[in-house]
């Protein structure tokens, strides 16, 4: 086994396995530990200049990568006109620099503010550093190996699909320059640490808020709804077995 297979074939599967299994286990078994871990209460000025550009920037950049993965032909067609290629590349680069700015503010804030330091765990810093590597290598790739959006569909789209469809072809990335390989490997690394760090808050994005009812009213003890006590009955039924009556209606969890 050579390095190429180890880093770009074996490790991706390890990362994906961790991502799926541990995330599921944590969401299900340790829900209290899942939080965005906001520190806005402790410091808000720098957070505004860090969090907002970082999150929006990274959101759009990831969306761009996803589009290139799902619609490679569309991307090539778009890039067929040089002007459109330039627009895309410049937009991507600008977004990356915006994100980088935000991330640096966040990193500075995390390491300089006394209150933030008090709530900082090693994993918080590790996540920020991994993200920093991703963004820096991404920018280096975009600047040094032009034009990323031009060769991505012919290199990364097949590579990523080969991993996701369980027919790995790590040789596709074997001959790429170091910075690009680092960018790819760092991606798998981020997936691997995802369930162990605050990154897990990404999968809790509350899109359901868009259509849920404003008010949530929950009957904690549904037996009261299912089994109205008749007027003459004493308040404490002594001989009656409530669960027998409930079973007819689908048990205590039965519909309301």
């Amino acid at each position: 086994m050579n390095w190429n297979i180890l880093l770009f074939q074996v490790f991706p599967y390890v990362a994906l396995a961790l991502l799926i299994i541990v995330s599921f286990q944590r969401m299900r078994g340790k829900p209290f530990s899942v939080s965005s871990l906001s520190s806005q209460l402790l410091e808000r000025k720098l957070l505004y200049f860090g969090s907002v550009p970082f999150h929006w920037g990274v959101l759009f950049i990831l969306l761009g990568h996803l589009l290139a993965l799902l619609l490679p032909q569309g991307l090539l067609l778009w890039n067929a006109v040089p002007m459109r290629l330039f627009v895309l590349e410049i937009t991507g680069l600008a977004l990356a620099l915006w994100t980088l700015g935000g991330l640096l503010v966040l990193l500075y804030r995390r390491l300089s503010n006394r209150r933030i330091l008090a709530v900082t765990r090693p994993t918080d810093v590790i996540v920020l550093l991994l993200l920093l590597v991703s963004i820096l290598t991404g920018i280096l790739t975009a600047v040094m190996y032009r034009y990323g959006s031009f060769w991505f569909p012919s290199v990364f789209t097949p590579y990523l699909w080969s991993i996701f469809t369980l027919r790995p072809r790590p040789e596709l990335v074997a001959d790429l320059p170091f910075w690009i390989q680092l960018h790819v490997f760092n991606f798998w690394l981020l997936l691997a640490v995802f369930p162990f760090t605050r990154l897990i808050h990404i999968i809790t994005v509350p899109l359901g808020y868009l259509w849920r009812p404003w008010q949530l009213v929950i009957w904690v003890r549904k037996h009261r709804r299912l089994q109205p006590i008749p007027p003459a009955a004493p308040p404490y039924p002594t001989s009656a077995k409530p669960q027998a009556a409930l079973q007819d209606k689908g048990g205590a969890y039965g519909s309301d």
């Binding site: 829900p31 939080s35 906001s38 809790t204 509350p206 949530l216 929950i218 009957w219 009261r224």
Partner: peptide
């Protein structure tokens, strides 16, 4: 946004489900 806060229908007490809360504040 998470739908973590709810009102108990029985007695109207408003509670935060700490397991559902994701700290969106």
């Amino acid at each position: 946004p998470s739908g973590a806060i709810y009102k108990r229908a029985e007695d109207g007490v408003v509670l935060v489900n700490e397991n559902k809360c994701k700290g969106w504040r």
